Computed example of a mutant assay.
Amino acid sequence: MKFFRKLFKYTIRTLLLLIIIAVGFVGYRTYQFTNNVNQYRQEVETIAQEMGVDDFTDTILGIMYTESKGIGTDLMQSSESAYGSRGQITSQQESIQYGVEHFAEVYQLSQQAGCDLSTAVQAYNYGFQYIDYVKNNGGKNSVELAEAYSRDVLSPGLGNSTQNQYRYVKLQSLLYNGGYLYSDGGNMFYADIVNMNERLVDWFYNIQK
Results as ranks from 00 to 15, higher is better:
G70C: 13
L75F: 09
G72V: 04
V44G: 07
A113C: 02
E105G: 01
Q32V: 15
Y28S: 14
F103H: 12
V143A: 11
V169Y: 15
S118T: 10
D116W: 01
N141F: 11
G185A: 09
R86W: 09
D184M: 07
I207S: 08
Q129Y: 07
F204S: 01
V37N: 01
E105M: 15
E43N: 11
L181I: 08
S110Y: 00
T34K: 07
V106W: 02
T30M: 13
Q97C: 08
G159E: 03
Y124A: 06
L174T: 11
D55E: 14
Q88H: 05
N38K: 05
M51I: 06
V169G: 08
T90F: 00
T14Y: 10
V134H: 00
V26A: 15
A104R: 12
G178W: 07
T162M: 09
T11I: 13
Q77A: 14
G159S: 05
G84W: 00
F33W: 15
G70R: 14
G114S: 02
G185R: 11
N141G: 06
L75A: 08
T30Y: 11
L17D: 03
G139P: 00
Y133N: 01
F8K: 10
L181C: 10
D55M: 14
K170N: 15
K69E: 15
Y182P: 07
Q92S: 12
I20K: 00
I207H: 01
S81M: 04
T11V: 12
T34L: 08
R29Y: 09
N137L: 02
L171I: 12
A82Y: 05
N137M: 01
D152E: 11
G127V: 01
G27T: 10
D55W: 10
L18T: 12
D74Y: 08
V106K: 04
A22L: 11
L75P: 09
T119M: 00
D74M: 07
L109Y: 10
S78L: 04
L7K: 02
E144P: 04
V134N: 00
E144G: 07
G24R: 04
D152P: 06
S173H: 03
D116C: 09
V201L: 01
G84L: 02
E94W: 02
Y168F: 15
Q208Y: 05
L15K: 11
V26N: 11
G70M: 10
S142Y: 02
T34C: 12
V26D: 11
V37A: 03
M188N: 06
Q122D: 01
S78D: 06
K6M: 09
L75C: 09
R41C: 08
D184L: 08
G178L: 04
N125A: 01
V53Q: 06
D54A: 13
T59I: 14
H102L: 13
T46M: 14
L181K: 08
I19E: 02
Y166R: 13
M64H: 12
Q122S: 02
S78M: 05
I193E: 15
K209H: 05
K9C: 15
L15M: 13
M1H: 10
Q88Y: 01
E43M: 14
R167D: 14
C115L: 07
S68W: 04
F3G: 08
K135G: 05
I96V: 06
G70E: 11
K69Q: 12
L158Q: 12
